[in-house]
């Protein structure tokens, strides 16, 4: 049996492009008026996704909703549990949050804890009119009562598997893989 991580391609570049395009259309439909819309990417990979959505919205509707960048480190409930302290990166929200319709953009929705932290972080900047959640991949296994409003792809996963999202802007390639844990596989066998 291979000791390598078992990796399975779940979205290739084309599939990803389609998923994001679909997300953009859903956002346009749901988030009128678009001049109150703002896209907020959750660091790290939510940020380029938010920029892609911005471009798509602009292409279709001719408006360019502002994009913010959110670092949720200080809001995480597990911030001191790892060995290394996470690096705190700047949060940039170049618009007035109060009264806006915010779409949080993240790559993967899993337990929901990141989203919980992101909600708290956004609220500390002001009182938005509404907050929606857009994710590229929903892989299930929620630990909090949260759901995404816009989902690029639903993927069935085991709890101990992981989803790896790669984006051109950061990783040089667009693809999503599902990978298992070799040691767990050993146990199963």
């Amino acid at each position: 049996m291979s000791a390598l991580v078992d990796r399975r391609l779940v979205l290739d570049a084309t599939a990803m492009r389609r998923a994001i395009r679909r997300l953009a259309h859903e956002i346009i439909e749901k988030c009128e008026p678009l001049d109150r819309l703002a896209l907020v990417g959750v660091r790290t990979r939510g940020v380029p996704l938010a920029h892609r959505l911005q471009a798509l919205v602009h292409e279709v509707e001719g408006v360019r909703p502002p994009v913010g960048e959110l670092d949720i480190t200080l809001y995480r409930d597990d911030v001191f549990e790892g060995l290394d302290l996470p690096v705190v990166q700047p949060t940039v929200l170049p618009f007035e949050v109060a009264g806006r319709s915010i779409v949080l953009v993240d790559d993967v929705l899993f337990t929901g804890r990141t989203t919980r932290a992101a909600l708290d972080a956004v609220m500390d900047w002001g009182r938005p009119r509404a907050v929606h959640l857009a994710v590229l991949v929903d892989r299930g296994h929620r630990e909090l009562p949260l759901h995404a409003d816009f989902i690029g792809a639903r993927i069935e996963t085991q709890r101990d598997e992981s989803i790896r999202v790669q984006l051109c802007e950061i990783d040089g390639v667009d693809r999503v893989d599902l990978q298992g844990r070799p040691e767990r596989r050993g146990e199963d066998a």
Binding site: V79, V87, D124
Partner: peptide, 19 residues
């Protein structure tokens, strides 16, 4: 670098994080 990031908190509506 950390201090630079924390500098941003002072610019917000709610100048407080739950860390």
């Amino acid at each position: 670098d950390l201090a630079d990031s924390f500098g941003g908190i002072t610019q917000r509506a709610i100048k407080k994080v739950p860390t």
